[in-house]
Amino acid sequence: FIDQHRAALIARVTNVEWLLDALYGKVLTDEQYQAVRAEPTNPSKMRKLFSFTPAWNWTCKDLLLQALRESQSYLVEDLER
């Protein structure tokens, strides 16, 4: 899901800070967390977050999807259609 809908997630996720907090310490290191937060816009934050995903396994991507479902369920539901 995460890889399949990358472009839509970059464009449409609005609550990136919540995602970062949910992933911090589980998937994201402090350095990665700070790097994403330093980006000026939500799309650039999501691009930076996605720059780390090639090194993630399915469990990490599932944690991101779970966080998306909790914070932006309407968006996930729309993309699952």
Rank of each mutant, 00 (worst) to 15 (best):
F1H: 09
F1V: 01
I2W: 05
D3W: 06
D3P: 00
Q4W: 02
Q4H: 10
Q4M: 12
H5I: 13
H5S: 04
R6S: 09
A7C: 11
A7H: 12
A7W: 09
A7K: 13
A8R: 08
A8T: 11
A8P: 00
I10R: 05
A11S: 04
A11Q: 03
R12N: 12
R12S: 07
R12F: 04
V13N: 01
T14S: 13
T14L: 06
T14Q: 11
N15V: 00
N15Y: 06
V16R: 06
V16T: 06
E17G: 09
E17N: 10
W18D: 15
L19R: 01
L19V: 13
L19I: 12
L20T: 13
L20I: 12
L20E: 04
D21P: 00
D21R: 09
D21K: 10
A22C: 12
A22L: 12
A22V: 07
L23N: 00
L23W: 00
L23F: 03
Y24W: 10
G25F: 01
G25S: 04
G25M: 08
G25N: 05
V27C: 14
V27I: 08
L28M: 03
D30I: 10
D30V: 09
D30T: 11
Q32E: 10
Q32M: 04
Q32G: 04
Y33S: 09
Y33W: 07
Q34L: 10
A35H: 04
A35D: 05
A35E: 13
A35G: 07
V36R: 02
V36C: 14
V36F: 06
R37E: 10
R37P: 03
A38L: 12
A38M: 13
P40I: 09
N42D: 11
P43F: 08
S44R: 13
S44H: 10
K45W: 02
K45F: 03
K45T: 03
M46S: 01
M46T: 03
R47C: 12
R47E: 14
R47Q: 13
R47A: 14
L49G: 03
L49Q: 01
L49W: 01
L49Y: 02
F50A: 03
F50I: 08
F52I: 06
F52W: 04
P54Y: 12
P54L: 09
A55P: 09
A55V: 08
W56N: 02
N57C: 10
N57K: 07
N57F: 10
N57M: 08
W58N: 15
W58D: 15
W58M: 15
C60G: 15
C60D: 15
C60P: 05
K61M: 08
K61Q: 05
L63Y: 14
L63M: 14
L65Y: 13
L65C: 11
Q66D: 12
A67F: 09
A67V: 07
A67P: 04
L68G: 03
R69C: 09
R69K: 14
R69E: 10
E70H: 09
E70F: 08
E70G: 06
S71K: 06
Y74M: 13
Y74A: 15
L75N: 05
L75S: 04
L75R: 06
V76R: 01
E77I: 07
D78P: 04
D78E: 13
L79T: 02
E80K: 03
E80P: 07
E80R: 07
